[in-house]
Design a protein around this nucleic acid. Structure first.
Length: 480
RNA sequence: GGCGACGUGGCCAAGUGGUAAGGCAAGGCUCUGCAAAAGCCUGAUGCGCCGGUUCGAAUCCGGCCGUCGCCUCCA
């Protein structure tokens, strides 16, 4: 089975062939840490999380690098986002950086997003950035003006190859690009002179200043993955100018192809409009997780192909939750059967279905990480599992184990939509015992056909979030 | 104005040449004391519109309409 990916560079689906067999170097543009992560970030990093998980499941040794932008990312007004926030809170810039970096990781951890192998910070790689800028100056791709250095886009004939933007035909149209001290309106900053009030500043051959936004990714990806690496990821909204600039800088400085495969994630929208800080239409990850489990949020994100946009709403989350519950109920049913299944028994018929599911799942993921189809394969399996486990036949232990392993591997390891192991709280045994006691009391009432009493117990438990289900083999419960 | 993406049943969403996956919602049924859960059945002669290519198109080509993204900070 070969993996095929849609390469934005060239706009076609291609067979994935890593530079070095069995190894994948992957760089994904990370967040600028000046505020809390919202669900739009969640989509991007859950999508790449599943991509990394699948690559690893497929046997690749993946080195996953994702930067933390903590300097140089300016607002339209020219203010540094970090400095602005620091000013508002009367804090040191690096306090802001620390705070929101930690919160970013906390949010991603909560979503079950595997941490990158390396999370380099821009501020920690200023020497590397300066060195690359010096190279670009030496090669004539950049020029210095008043302590700032700009990249001259006219020196790179390939400039625009990712976004299909030619420098020539940018002019017409409504927006008049700002030229300022730049030679061409499209030129972008590699290094900016620091004004006196700008406290995030470093020494450089051009005086005190700070690096431009794009150069960090070029410098850090080179440091950790080499001049040429396999996969570069990010959100489509950064294709231009950020990704385009990265390519230009890196390929001019290194005389080598930058990233071989470009995978860009579609944006998350609200009422059809992109969720963003500036529009104020965002919901933080923390807020969403108060209403929906991480697994449901992931299921929602994975319900559309990574490259497509997805519209966020409570209704959409609820629909995803229902679909997820159907799968998870079957997993629960399976794990419950694990305790009671006999060594010898029936149910072998489903083994073929398990193989079919694995094959369909792998084919889906190998086809540009098509998670929606992978989930559909799990849904179809779920129908079979429910039918078997509710049929009353005595299913053999190794069959139940095989079902559980399939779910654990595909839904758990790859998609990350099964809750992690048994996180049994200290009190939970006591809770178990209390619920069991109430179930027994209710069973007594039911035996006496005292429906009023039995329904009262069920209703009272439902009020505190405990759902009872009467099955042929007894009553089971789950925390809603 | 330029560069892109998208438009599939009530909603979400796969499908890129061979006769429309999957989920949610809805209705009917089975099971159940009831409920929940689960299962079964029902649903697009049709894939924005108009042309064209083809034995055959949601899928390819052309035109049009609409929505969104980027071009200015954003994942």
């Amino acid at each position: 089975m070969t993996l095929r990916v849609y390469n934005v560079l060239g706009r076609e689906k291609q067979e994935f062939v890593p530079i070095e067999p069995g190894r994948v170097g992957m760089y994904v543009c990370g967040p600028t840490v000046y505020d809390d992560s919202h669900i739009g970030h969640a989509k991007t990093y859950v999508n790449f999380d599943v991509i990394v998980r699948w690559l690893r499941k497929s046997g690749y040794d993946v080195l996953y690098v994702q930067n933390i932008t903590d300097v140089g990312h300016l607002l339209e007004s020219g203010e540094d986002r970090i400095l602005k926030k620091a000013g508002q809170l009367h804090a040191k810039p690096m306090q802001i950086v620390e705070t929101y970096t930690r919160r970013y990781f906390a949010a991603m951890d909560a979503l079950g997003v595997t941490r990158p192998d390396i999370s380099p910070r821009a501020s920690g790689h200023v020497p590397e950035q300066i060195k690359m800028i010096e190279t670009l100056l030496e090669k004539g791709n950049a020029y210095e003006v008043n302590g700032s250095v700009y990249f001259d886009v006219t020196t790179d004939p390939d400039y625009g190859k990712l976004s299909n933007r030619r420098v020539d035909d940018q002019e017409s149209g409504g927006r008049v690009a700002e030229r300022g001290e730049k030679r061409n309106p499209e030129d972008f900053a590699l290094w900016k002179r620091a004004e006196p009030e700008h406290i995030l500043r470093w020494e450089s051959p051009w005086g005190e200043g700070f690096p431009g936004w794009h150069i960090e990714c070029s410098a850090m990806s080179k440091k950790y993955l080499g001049a040429t690496f396999d996969i570069h990821g990010g959100g489509v909204d950064n294709m231009f100018p950020h990704n385009e600039s990265e390519i230009a800088q890196s390929e001019c400085a290194n005389d080598a192809i930058f990233a071989r495969y470009w995978l860009l994630v579609g944006s998350l929208t609200v009422d059809g409009v992109k969720m963003s800080k500036s529009l104020g239409n965002f919901t933080t990850v923390t807020d969403v997780l108060q209403r929906h489990s991480p697994e449901v949020v992931r299921t929602f994100v994975l319900s559309a192909h990574y490259s497509n946009p997805i519209d966020f709403s409570d209704d959409a989350l609820s629909a995803a939750a229902k679909g997820w519950e159907r799968i998870y109920n079957a997993v629960r049913l399976t794990r419950r059967a694990l305790n009671t299944a006999p060594t010898g028994g029936d149910g072998n018929g489903i083994l073929a279905q398990l193989e079919q599911t694995k094959t369909a799942f792998a084919a889906a993921m190998d086809d540009d990480f098509n998670a929606p189809i992978a989930i559909a394969a799990l849904q179809e399996l779920t129908r079979e599992v429910n039918t078997l486990l509710n049929s009353g036949t005595s299913v053999a232990l190794d069959v139940v184990k095989a079902i559980d392993e399939t779910y654990t591997s595909l839904a758990g390891d790859v998609l990350g939509i099964l809750p992690k192991g048994d996180q049994v709280a200290a009190d939970s045994h006591r809770e178990d015992a209390l619920v069991e006691m109430l179930i027994n009391m209710r069973a007594q009432a039911r035996a006496n056909k005292n429906w009023a009493e039995s329904d009262r117990i069920r209703d009272e438990l439902a009020k505190i979030g405990i759902i009872l289900e009467d099955r042929a083999d007894g009553t089971v419960w789950k925390a809603g």
